[in-house]
């Protein structure tokens, strides 16, 4: 019984990490697909999301089985609850990557020529930054889970502000371009939507980090600033 719970925990962890790595892959592809305006790669992302959804369900089922068979308490309980929550966040991140891919496909169907090739405006540099930071946050949050590293989890929360700043900067820039050249409206609208998706991806990564903090310290730090939390339960 005791050993088998440890074995089940390890299996559950591996399955969650598999989900994490597929979500990360899709995010990296989404960046490439956007920057290179590559509908073929975007289609790959959308089809890979089906596998991500299946994995999410299998992680959830595994959690349910552990609850039913082992009635975990204390650290074991916090672990399984945390996996369940991270699972949700990862699936949402996967959906957002697919949503970015969808935007690219939508524009491709309209035979849209991206503005970067028209040289009328610069591709906002903050996008690269936003992608890099969001992907890094997802990776760091999962690392904090694997390495049981609360300090790293606290760092993820700090990054979130930078992503928010980048999103604001992008919006200001895009709005300025739309005012000077309304023909770009559709493409720029898509970019705005992508920046919102990236911001939400960063939010989900922050949730994952907060759940890791709860798992490790029993502290609920959501809705609380300055790294202070309250005891759960």
């Amino acid at each position: 019984m005791i050993q088998s719970l440890a074995v089940e925990r390890e299996k559950l962890k591996q399955r969650l990490l598999q989900l994490g790595s597929e979500v990360e892959n899709n995010l990296i592809k989404a960046e490439k697909a956007l920057i290179n305006f590559d509908p073929k790669l975007a289609a790959e992302i959308v089809s890979a999301d089906v596998g991500i959804d299946d994995l999410e369900i299998s992680v959830e089922e595994k959690c349910m089985q552990i609850f039913a068979r082992h009635q975990p308490v204390a650290g074991d309980l916090r672990f399984v609850v945390t996996v369940l929550k991270i699972n949700n966040d990862l699936e949402r991140i996967g959906d957002l990557a697919a949503k970015i891919a969808d935007r690219i496909l939508l524009l491709a169907r309209k035979e849209y020529v991206p503005f970067s090739s028209q040289q009328t405006a610069q591709f906002p540099e903050q996008f690269r930054q936003m992608f890099a930071e969001s992907i890094k946050m997802v990776k760091m949050s999962l690392d904090s889970f694997v390495d049981m590293d609360a300090d790293l989890a606290y760092k993820v929360r700090l990054w979130d502000d930078q992503v928010d700043e980048a999103k604001k900067a992008i919006r200001v820039q895009i709005e300025a371009i739309i005012q000077s050249d309304s023909s770009q409206q559709q493409y720029l609208g898509m970019l705005l939507s992508v920046s919102r998706s990236l911001e939400r991806i960063a939010d989900h990564a922050t949730h994952i980090a907060e759940d890791v903090i709860y798992m490790l310290q029993g502290l609920i730090v959501r809705h609380v600033t300055e790294g202070r939390g309250r005891m759960g339960g």
Binding site: V73, A74, L77, R78, G218, M231, G232, G233
Partner: peptide, 9 residues
Amino acid sequence: LTKRVFTSP
């Protein structure tokens, strides 16, 4: 409190 001991001893 039981609810604490069994979640975060």
